[in-house]
Every structure is written in structure tokens, then in C-alpha cells.
Write a protein that binds this DNA or RNA. Structure first.
Lengths: 242, 242
DNA sequence: AAGTGGTCTAGACCACACG
DNA sequence: GTGTGGTCTAGACCACTTC
């Protein structure tokens, strides 16, 4: 019932680890009540704040659910909270040890709701900058990006040529935002894009669409098409190490 | 410089909100130092713990980076931490107001590394239970699932017929785990599966593969193929409301 | 009514990193 | 050296929920 204290490990982490261990090893099973904070304080010899911080951490991970009077209860469906890291293509490529580059292949000033494109959250006729890019890993095309920028939200975008700095990078450094929404779908690669990406027509590709707002003002839409099996999205999640 | 105190809003949330507001509205710009904890304590009239909790929260969101001696600095690339909610098909379908159901269409006891399937992390010859399912929304097939279960990690899986309880649900309730890894790819739907899912051959489908471990013991692999445009994966992330 | 978690404070010691 | 964040403690008040 004592606390294993590794050097350099904060006490609340030690508490968290101990409780995680007990849950994973089924000393506490789903639906069962954990000891109350007061009991843990007495049993582990730490302050209530320390216990509380550890328990809150477990609750944030979804391992337990905390309820007044009823106490802290072991959950049995904490997977619902799991998350995948957001896809960042240049970081991903660089991290794999490949050389990242990109090329701007299209640039177009337009008005919203023209040319077959309509940005629902933006009023018709609003000034929109459309960009088209290809991303490379070791000079091999791995993704196609079509991006729309709300010029009102980022006026200086007009002055950028996006030859050296990728739009995603530039936007990040120059335009604030507060909300982002993602959608992942699959697409049979149409002929033009297939040529650009150098894959056969109809190849199944993952499409990641990202829409960004700043305080209710739409900022940008990026639609990223990943070239078949040359790229994928992956992520790992682990509970506290035992 | 004072703190707007809404009723029922914890102070550390108020601090967090105030600092988020300043960052989003560029009162502090990327790279700039925030006031130190001590300064915020004096300026806002709250204790250091409260300020610290708020700042830690911002750091967890990636809005700021905290460094000893150098202080707390506004980040300009907090998007890297963004996450998508993990895909849970039955919850997703139910949440949309559709009726979820599933059907077990295949069951097979096998040995690892037989029949063209090899589970790299598991030794050859280990006993594996293979299941094949279809998931429906309003009786329309929306996903195909192929699942492998390491029988050693879940011996009682043999006794389950998985007619009423979906394998994912059963595993969740009966087998502990500590690590999960995901991979999202796209696939041109092969003929057999296309028939099952009632989509044309070659339709681009999103594939979500999920591998689960418990303390270094592989538990299960689930490969979920989403039927073309009938399902997608989406998620939203917002910073603290202003 | 009483147990439980949620929050807050004041004060303290420490490790770290920059000057 | 010294400012900074990281952590810990003891004690307190409160709101909520179930007993």
C-alpha cells in the first residue's frame, strides 16, 4: 500500500502510476469505487492536493469518473476519448528522414461561390485566394493540396508568393485562429490529380480537409489528398508507464 | 488588468480565459514573454497555484511554452498538438440518429502466420481467433471489420458467439489494455468486400486499423473498412471560449 | 446529514537555466 | 547568482449528491 518513489518522479505522478497499475491489473475492476481522496491521503502519506491532481489526471485520460458523494469509479470505456495526432505533412516527412519540399502549381484570386466552389460559412462574393500545391518526399510527390484563404482574415496573403514559405506555415505565423475542424474521407483519384501525384487513375487516396476559424471568422480551408500508399496517418496512445 | 468573474466559473478558468483572449487578440504575440506567475498573482489578485494551474492548462493546449528562468512564452505552432477523436463506429452512428446494428459473417480459429496473415508482434503458431463483421446504419452496410484476437490474452473469447455483443464491446469489457496504435489508409474496395458493402468495385474506402496491447502483450487487431462516402471521420477542436 | 470531490490560499523548498 | 516554473503541504470553504 506504499508508494514507490523513483528519483526525479513527482509524487503526483507516482500516485497516478500506482493507481493506473492497480486498474490495469484489475485490482480495481470496472464499476468499482476507488478509495476516497481522504483514504488515499492516509494510505499513501501525501497531501490531498497531490492525490487530487493524480486522480484528475486519470479522469482526464478517461480511466475513472469522479462523482461527488459517490466517489471515484473505474470506467470501462475510456477508449472513447482516444485521439489521433493531427496530420502535419512536412513534420511527418522530415521525421521519417526524408527530404521535404513543395511546389506551388496554381494561384487564383476569386470570389466566393464562383467557379463551382462555395464556402458555406463565408458570404457570397467575398474575396478568396485559391492555391494549389504539391508536396514531395525525396522529390517524389506524396500529396496534393488545394487551399482557400479568406482574404479578409489574411489581407497580406496577396503579397506573399508562397514560393519559399508554404501557405500552412505562413498562415500559422501570420493569422491567429481559435477553432479547427477536420474531416477524413477517401477519394478515387481523378485523372488530373493522378497525373500530378503520379499514381494510376482511380487510386484510393486519403483526403484530409481542415477548416480553420478565428473567433467565428472563417480563415482557411485546406484539402489535402495523400498519394495512395505513399503516406498514411498514424498515432499511438499509451497509458502511464508502469 | 482585472479579472472578469462569471458566477460559477472557477478562478483558474477565468485566468485561463483572460490569457487566451489576450493571446488570440494579439495583445501578446508569438515569441513574446507573458508576465511571470508572480506578476500575474499581483495583477490579478489570485494565488500562485491558481495562476499556475491556468498557465499549465494553456501549455497543455500548446498555446504557450513554459521555461524555467526564461518564463512563459507564446507559441506560434500550437497546431501540432491537435487531435482527432478516435473513431467509434457504433457511437458515431447512434449519435447521428441512425439505428446501429452489426452481423457476424465469419469466424475462424487459426494459428499466427497461417493463411496469409502474420501478426508481427505475436510468435508464429500462437492461437488466434479471426472474426469478420459488417456494421449497419438503418440496415444499410456502412463498414466491414476484420478482427484478430490473441487467444492467450483473451481465452474466454472462444466461448463467446458474438451474435449479440460486438467484439469491440466485449473486448472492452473483458480484456484490459494499456496501449493502442492507429493507422488510417485508403483502399480500393476489392470485389468480395464491395459486394458485402454494396458499393462498386474499386470504390475508395477509408481503412482504420487499430492495434491494442496490454503490457506488451498484443491483444487484438481490428481493421475497419468504411463504405465509401457513407461514413467519414471528423472532429473539432476549439480553444477556451472567450 | 454527511461524505465526496472542486477549488482556493499562504507559504515553502527545489531544480533549472540564463546572465 | 537569481528569477522562473515545478511541486508539495496544511488548512479551509463550498456545492453537490446520495444516504
Amino acid at each position: 500500500m506504499s508508494l514507490e518513489q523513483a528519483p526525479g518522479l513527482p509524487r503526483f505522478r507516482a500516485v497516478e502510476r500506482e493507481l493506473t497499475r492497480r486498474i490495469l491489473q484489475r485490482e480495481y475492476v470496472a464499476g468499482e469505487k476507488l478509495p476516497s481522496e481522504a483514504q488515499l491521503v492516509a494510505a499513501l502519506g501525501v497531501s490531498r492536493q497531490t492525490v487530487s491532481k493524480a486522480l484528475s489526471e486519470l479522469a482526464k485520460q478517461g480511466l475513472v469518473s469522479r462523482n461527488k458523494r459517490a466517489g471515484t469509479v473505474v470506467t470501462n470505456h475510456f477508449h472513447e476519448r482516444f485521439v489521433l495526432p493531427l496530420y502535419d505533412i512536412s513534420a511527418d516527412i522530415t521525421q521519417r528522414g526524408d527530404i521535404y519540399s513543395f511546389s506551388l502549381i496554381g494561384r487564383n484570386s476569386m470570389r466566393n461561390a464562383d467557379q463551382g466552389f462555395a464556402w458555406a460559412e463565408l458570404e457570397s462574393g467575398a474575396s478568396v485566394l485559391e492555391l494549389e500545391l504539391v508536396h514531395f518526399a525525396n522529390a517524389i510527390p506524396v500529396a496534393h493540396e488545394r487551399r482557400y484563404i479568406n482574404v479578409e482574415a489574411a489581407p497580406s496573403a496577396f503579397e506573399q508568393d508562397f514560393a519559399q514559405i508554404a501557405p500552412s506555415t505562413w498562415l500559422l505565423d501570420n493569422v491567429p485562429w481559435s477553432t479547427v475542424r477536420h474531416r477524413i474521407t477517401a477519394l478515387n483519384c481523378p485523372p488530373t490529380m493522378a497525373g500530378t501525384l503520379q499514381v494510376p487513375d482511380g487510386t484510393a487516396c486519403v483526403v484530409v480537409e481542415r477548416r480553420t476559424w478565428h473567433l467565428d471568422v472563417p480563415v482557411t480551408i485546406a484539402r489535402m489528398t495523400l498519394a495512395g500508399d505513399r503516406l498514411d496517418i498514424s498515432g499511438e496512445y499509451s497509458l502511464a508507464t508502469l
